[in-house]
Design a protein around this nucleic acid. Structure first.
Lengths: 133, 133
DNA sequence: CGTAATCGACTACGGCTGTAAACATGAAGG
DNA sequence: CCTTCATGTTTACAGCCGTAGTCGATTACG
């Protein structure tokens, strides 16, 4: 089988910054990505281009020709990326137990009242739809 | 101010494997750490020693002389490490909102019934002690 | 007292990451 | 047509990470 499936490789932190720009709005030209990302990170244009190239190589981003230049779009959804990273963390740190993560966040006082309320709401929602399977 | 505070630097994945051994039991000699860690990762003894050295340099591990050799102990608690990593992830991925993380785990079906029950229990607990501050 | 074993320190090296310059190529304008 | 500008590609390079060999010192045994 050919590995044309998106995103086997890992996305680094610098690359993620570029992805964020594309997730916020796409397609974008390389220059537009640079305008969105470079100032905040102090990057030069070449740096952004390199990152874009690597993301294309990793099949996390796809290109569409637009005249002489390219338009870049994400090939993976932000939610998939976030879910994957979250899962990795839970795996690595809490033996796959999401409750473990939650407990640690609570302990570190990283949970605001707002967080608690939202989580509570989500819990109820999950309980509600806990039908099939 | 001197930077003798523990753990400014990041701990890599390979290093974490070594830390796990020390968190499980400490102090340990380098050889004991190697025995605990090397087989599972296919590492040689020198590799484990290098990782230990780097952890000492990063002040994540401390040494105590024991005759001719050293005994190694973690200088940072596993829970602190876990909390830090979790916070970083939440920061990087969900703009600091733990509820965002939770929602994504739920969406990715990474939450078992057991997780849900435990989280629910934790929530109640947090609500209960929500006194001070 | 000398030699072997033990153990930490130093050195090494390929690969990846962050950062960027140089290059090539095609388009546009004079 | 030739020059210049824009844009993607190639190359570069330092630093860190994963992995490991070698060196030197200290200990222990004969």
């Amino acid at each position: 089988m050919a590995d044309d499936s998106p995103q086997n490789e890992r996305i680094t932190e610098a690359e993620q910054a570029v992805m964020e720009a594309l997730w916020a709005k796409s397609p974008l030209t390389a220059n537009e990505v640079a305008d969105a990302v470079a100032p905040a990170r102090g990057w030069s244009l070449p740096t952004v281009k390199t990152l874009l190239s690597r993301l294309v190589a990793k099949q996390a981003v796809e290109t569409a020709p637009d005249g002489k230049r390219f338009l870049y779009s994400p090939r993976i959804a932000r939610s998939d990326f976030a879910a994957g990273e979250s899962k990795r963390l839970v795996e690595r740190l809490f033996g796959g137990s999401a409750a473990g993560l939650f407990a640690h966040l609570a302990e570190a006082e990283a949970l605001s009242d707002k967080d608690l309320n939202q989580i509570e709401a989500l819990l109820r929602e999950l309980r509600g739809q806990e039908v099939g399977k």
